[in-house]
Nucleic acid binder design. Structure first.
Lengths: 186, 186
DNA sequence: ACCTGAACACCGTTCAAGT
DNA sequence: ACCTGAACACCGTTCAAGT
């Protein structure tokens, strides 16, 4: 378990990806309090200080996790079915990302810098889609984004309970239908 | 600054209310990280350990703060103007509570026990009001509550910037109008 | 009842020393 | 470049001792 003092053999060191994976697992298991630089290092069989060679900070760690989770939400969102269907796809994919790791989402809220980066792109795309169906596209953009965030955080209270998570997810989709019913199908 | 070792003279000790006030101030200034039992004690000119005579825990402290903030949201909500106006009043008061201390709201999300207590009453009342205007009252209850939470958290990114907070507040009211326009004015 | 002081088991992060 | 070990300035909380 104890490693030699110097530079590890090629391929024996910790990867940045391995760090991110382990960090996300800790966050999912025990929330923000469960993810400490020390617990993370322990899980990787490494000294806490070695993490700082791959990550700037705890804040930088959260930012990297956020980028990885939200980075490809926009992938696969197309407008083939019209703008309303595009919006539905986008919001569903966004919510699904939150569902996968609500604890990460919560942690990111406390780290505004991490949050802003990943969500900017998503927000802009959503605004563009909404502009095609309503003049009040900015208001509706905020409604949809805020609703997704609020719904995502509701998942934290349902920690681990698979049935409740499923019910909340259904409720989200239903709410989304309800909201999108405002707009004419173009 | 240094106090005597024994029981303080009557009226010289720290009050539970003084503790809660100082804790809220710290939370507003520097967020969750700014509120430590030690910084709180320092601000009150007291040893950290003396706090435990008035509060069970750090968690208990947050719960008490939550009860105080959300405890009287329902006060002054009447149905004189019909159910839709009642809903508008309730949601506005709820959002205003979040606006006053978004950092507390965020901290509470991480402490599900604290959250549940205060919000249960509010959620129930909202559901009852909605039942008068739509059969889908449970769906709409979740939409409105989640939207309020998401909007409240958006305030954290606008930290301190009074103009932005004002703009977000206006956006919330506009969104609420937009959402409530669904329902017939009874 | 209500405070202090010392202590325990934690944190994140820096810095110098190793290979 | 990438790891270790020791150290610094923090945490929350417990426990015994004071009045």
């Amino acid at each position: 378990m104890t490693r030699p003092r110097g530079r590890p053999a090629r391929g024996q060191g910790v990867t940045r990806d391995a760090i991110l994976d382990a960090a996300l697992a800790l966050l999912d298991e025990d929330g923000d309090a469960g993810l400490t630089m020390r617990s993370l290092a322990a899980r990787l069989g490494v000294t806490p200080m070695s993490l700082y060679h791959h990550v700037t900070d705890r804040a930088g760690l959260l930012r990297a996790l956020s980028d990885r989770l939200y980075g490809d939400v926009l992938q696969g969102v197309d407008e083939a079915g019209g703008p309303v269907e595009g919006i539905r796809m986008l919001m569903t994919r966004y919510y699904d990302a939150v569902v996968m790791h609500p604890q990460l989402t919560l942690a990111i809220f406390a780290e505004p810098a991490a949050f802003a980066g990943a969500s900017l792109e998503i927000t802009e795309r959503l605004g563009a889609l909404l502009a095609a169906v309503t003049p009040a596209h900015l208001v509706w953009r905020d409604i949809l984004v805020d609703h997704a965030h609020g719904s995502g955080l509701a998942l934290i209270a349902a920690r681990g309970d698979v049935a409740r998570v499923g019910a909340l997810r259904d409720a989200y989709r239903q709410a989304l239908d309800c909201l999108l019913a405002q707009f004419p199908v173009v």
